[in-house]
Design a protein around this nucleic acid. Structure first.
Length: 426
RNA sequence: GGAGAGGUGGCCGAGUGGUUGAAGGCGCAGCACUGGAAAUGCUGUUUAGGGGUAACUUUAACGAGGGUUCGAAUCCCUCCCUCUCCGCCA
């Protein structure tokens, strides 16, 4: 959520930054409504002040033994009634304005940071670096992961359709074990890097989704439990960040760094023709997520190190990847800056997203009301939140099944996973 | 699902319809004491919005939303949540 005060103070500067995203976002209506709301507020507080005064006066008189039926008190009560009648008219109008402003604010995305490259769409993202060319596979006959996976009997696409529907997968035998090994490996690495592991609920309420920015705008992207106010979390970002919703943290508790393994659920509405085969785009997938809650002045450095922590996994697995910095036109709703890690996927002859590392600034903290207090200082400040995948498990599995495929149709297990899996070859 | 209890400030915990943003404690900050610390004492310490350069001022908030009243943490209604016991259950 953007800061209403900032919008009031620098409407033009805010509009300009917002427009860099494209999409036609405008703050005009908010500015206009807020002005009207404040006029009403001024009137209302004046009336309320008088009303409080009357209440106190009557209280004093009664205590000092005045007759409740005395002319003086009756007159005060009468005035109180009049004030109340006026308030009864003003209050609902002001509330209506406030509600409309709130709704508009919740639908506005974050401002891109100054350092985010300006661009219209994903074609203008900037490649920052590339890693692992020496590990690009030499085998010219690589089967796509879904084919090798079915051949090896470890990926169950058809059967998963029977159990659920399309865009689900089942894992069997070494496939299930590999998934589990990847989860354990990634968690172990991030714990070593200083993250505290969390296992949060994966059903989350609406307030949580609003806190991290998925609601109200992206309701159709998540699965909803019809008879409860609960949704299947699309990413661990939601439950983990919301662990701290409405908290006032002490500055000594920051930075908070969490890693979390959870299944993730996405409806993938509107992606009908895309990635219909394989592990790339599923309704349910596993992910290890990194989440940070930090002091504002450290968030840029924490962002860089977050990206590094995600990259370390790819490097340990010796999977070739590149780092993209998203341009203003491709930035996610809540992010002010974002790096995508893309892993080399031979079947699509391209790099595919396997992690997205975003800095949200205070955008989520405002929505989720996550603040911290500086020892000895008055007031509170909004924290900064960040998160990134470290990494998406299914896509990592796909990358391994392809990049590690040998000409005899077997798949090597990356060295760092061999001890987890107790084997060297699939 | 049935029965009961309860939701108050960063935390614990009092609270009579009337000048209560709310006793007391903890925590935190400052000062005193000390060679330094602990202990002790004193003082201060909620958050958010509006107005003001500022000092300051004003409003709101005791789970949420309504209601009664000149006035509600306190009375009434609706909803939400938590806890305990019973039932069911991985």
């Amino acid at each position: 959520m953007l800061d209403l005060k900032q919008i009031r103070k620098n409407p033009d500067a805010i509009q300009e930054r917002l427009s860099l995203r494209g999409g036609g976002y405008s703050i005009d209506e908010i500015v206009n409504l807020e002005q009207q709301q404040r006029e009403l507020e001024t009137q209302r507080t004046k009336l309320q002040a008088r009303s409080n005064e009357i209440g106190k006066l009557i209280g004093q008189k009664m205590k000092s033994g005045s007759d409740p039926k005395s002319e003086e008190i009756v007159a005060l009560k009468e005035e109180g009634n009049q004030v109340k009648a006026q308030l009864g008219e003003l209050e609902p109008r002001e509330k209506e304005f406030k509600a409309r402003i709130e709704a508009l604010l919740l639908a506005l995305p974050n401002l891109p940071s100054e350092s985010t490259p300006v661009g219209k769409n994903e074609t203008e993202n900037v490649e920052v670096r590339r890693w692992g060319d020496e590990y690009l596979p030499e085998n010219p006959d690589i089967l796509p992961h879904w084919e090798i996976g079915e051949k090896l009997g470890i990926l169950l696409f058809d059967r998963a359709v029977k159990v659920a529907q399309s865009r689900f997968v089942g894992l069997m035998g070494a496939g299930a074990a590999l998934e589990r090994a990847l989860i354990a490996f990634m968690l172990d690495r991030q714990i070593q890097a200083g993250y505290i592991e969390v296992m949060p609920p994966v059903l989350v309420n609406s307030a949580s989704l609003q806190g991290t920015g998925q609601l109200p705008k992206f309701a159709e992207e998540s699965f909803k439990c019809d008879s409860d106010d609960l949704w299947l979390a699309p990413t661990a970002e939601v439950p983990v960040t919301n662990l701290y919703r409405d908290d006032i943290l002490s500055d000594k508790e920051l930075p908070i760094r969490h890693c979390a393994y959870t299944p993730c659920f996405r409806r993938e509405a509107g992606s009908y023709g895309k990635d219909t085969r394989g592990l790339i785009r599923l309704h349910q997938f596993n992910k290890v997520e990194l989440v940070k809650i930090v002091r504002p002045e450290t968030s840029e450095a924490e962002h860089q190190s977050l990206v590094g922590d995600a990259e370390a996994i790819l490097q340990a697995l010796k999977l070739p990847y590149r780092v993209l910095e998203l341009c203003t036109g491709d930035l996610g709703f809540g992010a002010n800056k974002c790096y995508d890690l893309e892993v080399w996927l031979p079947s699509s002859d391209s790099y595919r997203e396997i992690s997205s590392c975003s800095n949200f600034g205070d955008f989520q903290a405002r929505r989720a009301n996550i603040r911290f207090k500086e020892t000895g200082k008055k007031g509170t400040q909004f924290a900064h939140t960040l998160n990134g995948s470290g990494l998406a498990i299914g896509r990592t599995m796909a990358a391994i099944l392809e990049n590690y495929q040998q000409s005899d149709g077997t798949v090597k297990i990356p060295e760092v996973l061999q001890s987890y899996l107790g084997r060297e070859i699939l």
